[in-house]
């Protein structure tokens, strides 16, 4: 009687092991996908999602782009996902954009920030001094600007 009992047990164990292997592979891949990609958050309501800037960022194999529509959503992502970079639009109020940067840094100063602005880089740097922002992007940013930004992130050691 002992023989069949062990056979059944062995079969059950084999099935369980096989199912676990499949599940672990699926979950492992999912977890790896979300943890190994560098998360870039775009809070850029006026940018066309099909623009060369956004598609160039999205097409990078190590980047996951998340687009948000509200300040609350952007700050929630900063709090919960610690993105590598948040891209903001200056819009018509530079102080508001700088205020958002301070809000981001108050949550997590390790998060890099960059602003899309019509201002020349030197004037913007003067305005944003001390906030440790990346060199600003022109309005509207192009695919070339996206490639330069990716190169800068690479130099900062953002991609692992």
């Amino acid at each position: 009687m002992a023989g069949p009992y062990f056979q059944v047990t062995a079969k059950t164990n084999a099935e369980t092991v096989w199912k676990n292997v499949v599940l672990q592979a699926v979950f492992g891949y999912t977890i790896a996908y979300f943890t190994m990609k560098t998360n870039i958050v775009l809070f850029t309501p006026s940018l066309n999602p099909a623009s060369g800037f956004i598609t160039t960022l999205s097409d990078h194999e190590d980047v996951r782009v998340t687009t948000v529509a509200t300040t609350e959503e952007m700050l929630r992502l900063v709090r919960e996902e610690s993105p590598a970079l948040v891209v903001l639009e200056e819009g018509d109020d530079a102080r508001k954009a700088l205020g958002l940067v301070i809000d981001i840094l108050s949550i997590n100063a390790m998060v890099n920030t960059i602003t899309i602005t019509a201002m020349d880089p030197e004037s913007w740097h003067e305005k944003s001094e001390g906030l440790g922002m990346l060199e600003p992007l022109p309005a509207p940013p192009s695919a070339t600007d996206a490639r330069k930004l990716l190169a800068t992130l690479g130099r900062l050691g953002v991609f692992t």
């Binding site: 100063a109 390790m110 001390g130």
Partner: peptide, 12 residues
């Protein structure tokens, strides 16, 4: 002397 970001970073 230092900027706001590194100060926040140190404190965090």
């Amino acid at each position: 002397g230092m900027g706001m970001r590194p100060l926040m970073g140190f404190n965090q």
